[in-house]
């Protein structure tokens, strides 16, 4: 038996998230790693992507030479608009979040607590120049907020924590955390770990995280 942990790549995590998003969903993908989920959505179903700068029905990156400076996503990258797309202003765009109209939002994180608190906008460093953008609106703005992140920092510390030490983005807002080691569901009964990667035992995962976990099926 091998004890080498077969961690998922970023692409594999994105594919796992994409597989869990049902046909007919309205989805916002946060900037950074979550944008990879768009490349993994299965064909033959309708998932409508929202970008908070004012577009529902966001399509893929345009071919070279077809970029339009008036058509960008929240990460300020050039995008396209799919047939059936709609443009709208910022107050309408954030009403889609705050009003509970978006089904899923996938965000990156510095830390997630076992009660679903999210920290993803500010490292907390004294000399950091703050910028928040739509992070706090997104954190509270979808029916289900998913986080996509590596379980450990580069220094090997768990980003799933009992209590966030970085400044919070939202309280109790995260429903599920997809990582390179396992998937974690934040529930009122505790944090349930499931879909552990091959080579990783529940006991080893608990030790890596240093927080109480429940064994999922």
């Amino acid at each position: 038996m091998s004890d080498v942990i077969q961690r998922l790549t970023r692409k594999q995590i994105a594919a796992r998230i994409a597989a869990d998003i049902p046909d007919g969903s309205y989805v916002n993908l946060g900037i950074g790693a979550p944008t990879e989920v768009a490349n993994c959505l299965p064909s033959g179903i309708t998932i409508i992507l929202h970008t908070e700068n004012g577009l529902l029905g966001m399509g893929p990156t345009p071919p070279p030479g077809a970029e339009d400076p008036d058509l960008i996503n929240a990460g300020k990258q050039y995008v396209t608009a799919n047939p059936g797309a709609a443009y709208f202003h910022h107050a309408d765009s954030f009403a889609m979040m705050r009003g509970g109209h978006l089904d899923y939002c996938v965000l990156g994180a510095y830390q997630v607590s076992i009660t679903g608190d999210l920290a993803n906008w500010h490292t907390g460093a004294a000399d950091a120049i703050p910028a928040v953008g739509g992070a706090m609106d997104l954190a509270i703005g979808a029916k289900s907020v998913f986080v996509m992140m590596d379980l450990l920092t580069k220094a090997g510390k768990s980003k799933l924590v009992s209590r966030c030490t970085s400044p919070l983005t939202g309280i109790g807002c995260v429903k599920r955390v997809y990582t390179d080691h396992a998937i974690f569901d934040i529930t009122p009964q505790g944090t349930v770990a499931h879909d552990l990667v091959p080579g990783l035992t529940f006991e080893a995962l608990e030790k890596l995280c240093g927080v109480p976990l429940r064994r999922g099926t």
């Binding site: 910022h90 979040m97 703050p130 910028a131 928040v132 953008g133 706090m136 609106d137 703005g141």
Partner: peptide, 9 residues
């Protein structure tokens, strides 16, 4: 510093 949606609203 104002969250983007709060800025719009």
């Amino acid at each position: 510093l104002v969250p983007q949606g709060n800025l719009a609203e």
